[in-house]
Structure formats: C-alpha cells, structure tokens
C-alpha cells in the first residue's frame, strides 16, 4: 500500500509516501529523523496487518512542510536522513 501523509494547500503539495509493502517497521527512520516526524505503529489503513509500519506522527501531518524544513534548506542539496536510513527504499518525499 502507498500511504500518503501530509497535505496540499495553496502553497504546494507536501506528502511523505510510505510503501507499506516494503516497510517492515524496523524504525530506522524514526531514529534518523531529528524532529520526531516518523513513528512506528500499527497500520491504520490495514487493520488486519500484524506487522508494525512507519507512519508520520499525527502532530506533524498538518505541518510537515515546516517540520521537515530544517532538512530541506533552500540552498545546497542535502540528503534526507529518513530516506538514507531506510534499507528498503520504502520512503519518499513529494517536495
């Protein structure tokens, strides 16, 4: 499943996509994120799944443009720690 967390507003689209078929809930993205954006828990969109899965913490879902801002400076490309930490390439950012 492709779980998209985030939002679209007048200024743009900001989504973190988690491929739950690839994610095994290892939690490396949780450790890697300096701002507590990622959490691991039960799969909200698949209640019959037993394996935990990575999601975006509820308190960040409506402001990830800002929560993820420090990892996305306007100048200089920086690799995102959450993406680097994921061994399964299960994470993607839309912006």
């Amino acid at each position: 499943m492709l779980a998209n967390y985030g939002y679209q507003d007048g200024s743009g689209s900001y989504f973190i996509t988690i491929d739950t078929d690839k994610c095994d809930g290892c939690g490396r993205c949780v450790t890697a994120c300096p701002y507590g954006v990622m959490v691991v828990g039960p799969d909200e969109a698949d209640p019959l799944r037993d394996l935990p899965v990575a999601t975006v913490a509820d308190e960040h879902r409506r402001k990830i443009k800002y929560s993820c801002g420090p990892c996305k400076p306007t100048s200089g490309v920086r690799e995102l720690p959450c993406l680097l930490a994921c061994p399964w390439e299960a994470l993607a950012h839309s912006w």
């Binding site: 801002g69 420090p70 996305k72 306007t74």
Partner: peptide, 12 residues
C-alpha cells in the same frame, strides 16, 4: 510566528 521562523531557518 512559528511558521515564519521555520521558513526563515531554511535560508539560515
């Protein structure tokens, strides 16, 4: 202010 601060921090 929190939104403006986040934006400002992106430029350093």
């Amino acid at each position: 202010a929190s939104r403006i601060t986040s934006m400002a921090r992106r430029v350093g």
